[in-house]
Amino acid sequence: MAMVALRREGRRFLLSPMSPNPATAARSAILSEEFNPSGTRSISTQVVRNRMKSVKNIQKITKAMKMVAASKLRAVQIRTENSRGLWQPFTALLGDVPSVDVKKNVIVTITSDKGLCGGINSTSVKISKSLYKFTSGPEKETKYVILGEKGKVQMVRDSKNSIEMSITELQKNPLNYTQVSVLADDILKNVEYDALRIIFNKFHSVVSFIPTVSTILSPEVVERESESGGKLGNLDSYEIEGGETKAEVLQNLAEFQFSCVLFNAALENACSELGARMSAMDSSSRNAGEMLDRLTLTYNRTRQASITTELIEIISGASALTG
């Protein structure tokens, strides 16, 4: 945010037209590429020096943020890659059917709490909104459950009536399964659903994140789907311990699946957030560097010009005396 303001400021600074006001005229004279002979002697380079200092400080901050994100990313990335093993068996058994058509949809949008991380939050929100349009219709109900401060802020603007719950401060401690499962439990107890759709940014590499939708069906819907020739026929070939009926097993599985998928989704999104922050901060530092170069050039040119003028004055004065 600071960078954007600064960039705008810098542009305004460099392009500001000559105005009749002497103070601003002096300022633009320093920065304009053309050397302005009439005002040369009284030019102060203070303004440019201050600006250079502030740009340098901002560059330091963005560089530090990049380093922090990079070092955090490494740990989170390993955990994310390990957590993928949690949902894969579920998808193999129950399948992932994003196109299923049910009455009560709950969209779980995962975003970050902090900003300065590129466009990953708006991507999540955008996908959620289009999914909302896709799933809503007559006699249907779609609700949002939002994780993260940034998603909440964006959703409040135009779809605040469909928000069912919002969760923040999830990432105060490092993410762990216990935390996410308690959260999953809270969500399950408080919303009615036929299908839960979790939206998050899947981490692919430091620069690429794929917005992903994971669908979790309620046990009843799973059963109905399996009767109409779904994937679930396999479940009967498993030997299940304990005296539980198929419906109970399915309910347990659906609950456990939700918490596992949510855990992986939260981790993937945290990982993407760090990656996005890293590249955003990298480009900010580069922009600050470019701006610093431009400012240094104008500064030096002005300084050189005033030195030259002084020399010319001294020499011409001396030659006038001798001549």
Partner: peptide, 24 residues
């Protein structure tokens, strides 16, 4: 035990307004 730590704030929404968040 460090992997057991739970912390988040949850708030339900009613009529387009968030209710007071409860911190778990």
């Amino acid at each position: 035990a460090t992997r057991e730590k739970v912390h988040f704030a949850i708030s339900k929404w009613a009529n387009g307004k968030p209710e007071k968040p409860t911190i778990r």
